[in-house]
Design a protein around this nucleic acid. Structure first.
Lengths: 206, 206
DNA sequence: CGAGCGAGAGAACGCTCGTTCTCTATACGT
DNA sequence: ACGTATAGAGAACGAGCGTTCTCTCGCTCG
């Protein structure tokens, strides 16, 4: 009688892949919500409904689990962003879709800023792998912005992409700290202004 | 013979105010460089050249010391920014001076991002006082930007101030993580573009 | 000059937490 | 059905750290 209990949160004899997934889900939720150092392995075990032995079989140390957490979050975030941007066709709409994505994200109940900025601030000087993961995440974002503004025909794509990156990161930080009102909308209007200024509506000169 | 040693880093019988200053200096340096949780009271004691007893006499707990650290940093940072902005007279120059200040700051040898963003990411969900201090710091920055853009005659100062805030925070984060090239300059040019778009050079209409 | 208050140095305490070990019970192969 | 390998549950271990305590010494005040 139901010793398996696939979707319950309590313990039971479970498959190896299922255990990995549950652990990673629990770790992602807890690390993101409370910070890495504030969450112990015991709490992850409880939330995942897995034995400590299993936990250490799947992820042999907390450092490994932290890296897996960041990697997973990078993949999910980039995928969600890509989907959101992909729903827009016109180049300019694709750029503003980035900020629409941010607006939706900021409204999420458990939003607590950017995992990578948080992890970098918390562990960056101590843990080179964490610092590298955070930089890699931002580099991918920067590259995506680069292709978007290039497709939009910006005069100097490198400059504009950097500026949009600043707006995105600033909006995330401001949303996390509640500093600016409607950070996503403010960032989007700023991005539109920069975009309009950067891609001349009529070809200049001849 | 020199049991006092005011400017040496080693121990010795010292005055109470001097002890407070040395402790706060050491705490600021270490907390900022390595993060709050990564620095122990013993290390602060060593760096300050003070006994543990003295340390706890001046700051009765680590939490108190952390709050003093953030408060001190807020005061110093705002003062430095005010000085930098104060050297410019024209309203538009005063706005761009903010980004000149950032550029100088980013070149500092021990630059490691914004103490408040870092502390918020590290301790925000755990420590309400830290979260409050970070929000207060950003609120002050936002207010300063508000007055600057108002003096510059922006059409909608609230929107522009928010946007400049996003650029500033984004530039700080990008500088800390090495994401964008020349974040301060990129932010400044973006700010100038937004500023030009926001304050009509000729009064519109009549 | 002597007594005592306070400072410095560091050991000690208690707690947390990452990691491992032990013990018991269960599933599976023959 | 029995032995064995493995999982679960949680105790145990060791290190790190915030905080306190002890001991000794030196300065100060009468």
């Amino acid at each position: 009688m139901d010793t398996q209990g696939a979707d319950t949160a309590r313990r039971g004899r479970i498959d190896g892949d299922e255990a990995r997934r549950r652990i990673l889900d629990a770790a992602e939720r807890l690390f993101y919500a409370r910070g890495v150092q504030a969450v112990g392995m015991d709490q992850i075990r409880d939330a995942a409904g897995v034995s400590l032995k299993r936990l250490y079989q799947c992820y042999p140390s907390k450092d490994v689990l932290v890296e897996a957490y960041l990697e997973h979050r990078d993949r999910r975030w980039n995928q969600a962003l890509a989907e959101h941007v992909g729903r827009a066709a016109a180049p300019r709409e694709r750029v503003t879709a980035v900020f629409g994505f941010l607006a939706e994200w900021f409204e999420t109940a458990d939003f607590r800023g950017c995992s990578f900025i948080n992890a970098f601030g918390e562990l960056g000087p101590t843990s080179p792998p964490v610092a590298a993961a955070a930089r890699a995440h931002k580099r991918r974002l920067r590259e995506r912005l680069g292709t978007l503004v290039t497709e939009a025909g910006a005069a100097d794509p490198d400059v504009l992409a950097d500026q949009l990156l600043l707006l995105v990161e600033g909006a995330i930080v401001a949303a996390a700290m509640g500093t600016a009102t409607g950070p996503a909308e403010r960032a989007r209007s700023a991005a539109l202004a920069l975009l309009s200024a950067a891609c001349p509506p009529a070809p200049p000169g001849r």
